[in-house]
Simulated assay, not measured.
Amino acid sequence: MFNLNNLKQEPELDEEESSVLLSIGDLMSGLLMIFALLFVTVLVQLKDREEPRRVIVGTVVEQMKGNNINVNVNPETGDVTIQDKILFDENSAELKPAGKIFLRRFIPVYSRVIFANKDFKKEIARVVIEGHTSSKGDYDTNLELSLLRALAVSKFIFSNELNFPTKWELRTKVMAAGRGEMEAKQKVDDPSDRKVIFRFQFRGENFSEWYRKNQSLQQQNR
């Protein structure tokens, strides 16, 4: 016998299934909206973070040119490169008199940029002074020499021989490092590889991330 009750129940089941599907669809739409908002928020934060860094780098470039300081400034990172012949004699980690004169001109201007305003000061977490050598000579000797040169520059900056208004603030940000021939052109004694670099590590970058970023940029610029 045909049961009329069955006809009444089937539409009710269809309605329940439709209701469940609509709920899942609404949930997915809500999640997608949340992810979209988070993505936009991250993009805005990254843009806000990049803007002061570009201003800082641009200010470094302007100040070096404006004060006729003979250095090479990377327009993307703000790295300041000083050829070692300005600072040291060959195979020596003792600053030359001419090197000290150069640092007396360069450091006050460079430090003034870092502490130009509270935003710059906050954004620049660290200044790394790196010594570099060419591939000429023994690897271990080059590594040691590069570190000793970076330390010599750092010690001179904070010695009694050099005075500038932001000296003690700068001390809290500086770190010396030796890179030796690790970033030199392979098997080529290129004088341009012998240098001291002042590098910014910006706020929010842990050291490993900062190091990888700089390694990548150096490879691109070669």
Rank of each mutant, 00 (worst) to 15 (best):
N3K: 15
N3V: 08
N5W: 05
N5F: 02
N5P: 00
L7F: 14
Q9V: 03
E12R: 15
E15L: 15
E17R: 02
S18I: 11
S18E: 04
S19N: 09
S23M: 04
D26I: 06
D26A: 04
L27A: 12
L31G: 04
L32K: 06
L32I: 11
L32T: 07
L38P: 01
V40Q: 09
T41C: 04
V44R: 13
D48E: 06
R49M: 07
V55N: 13
V57R: 08
V60Y: 10
M64K: 04
N67M: 07
N67S: 11
V73C: 08
N74M: 03
E76S: 01
T77V: 05
G78C: 05
I86F: 05
F88S: 00
E90R: 11
N91K: 12
S92I: 11
S92L: 03
E94T: 01
A98I: 09
K100C: 09
K100T: 07
L103V: 13
F106M: 01
F106D: 03
I107S: 03
P108R: 07
P108F: 07
P108L: 10
Y110H: 05
S111D: 04
V113H: 04
F115P: 12
D119T: 15
F120K: 00
K121M: 14
K121E: 15
K122I: 14
E123G: 01
A125C: 01
A125E: 14
V128D: 03
G131L: 00
G131I: 00
H132W: 11
S135N: 15
K136S: 02
G137I: 05
G137M: 10
D140A: 15
D140E: 15
L143G: 15
S146E: 01
L147G: 01
R149S: 03
A150H: 00
V153M: 07
K155S: 03
F156E: 01
F156M: 00
N160A: 11
N163C: 04
K167V: 00
E169I: 00
T172F: 09
T172P: 05
A176S: 10
A177M: 09
R179E: 01
R179D: 02
E183H: 12
Q186M: 02
K187N: 14
D189W: 15
K195W: 04
K195P: 15
R203M: 08
N206Y: 11
N214S: 08
N214L: 09
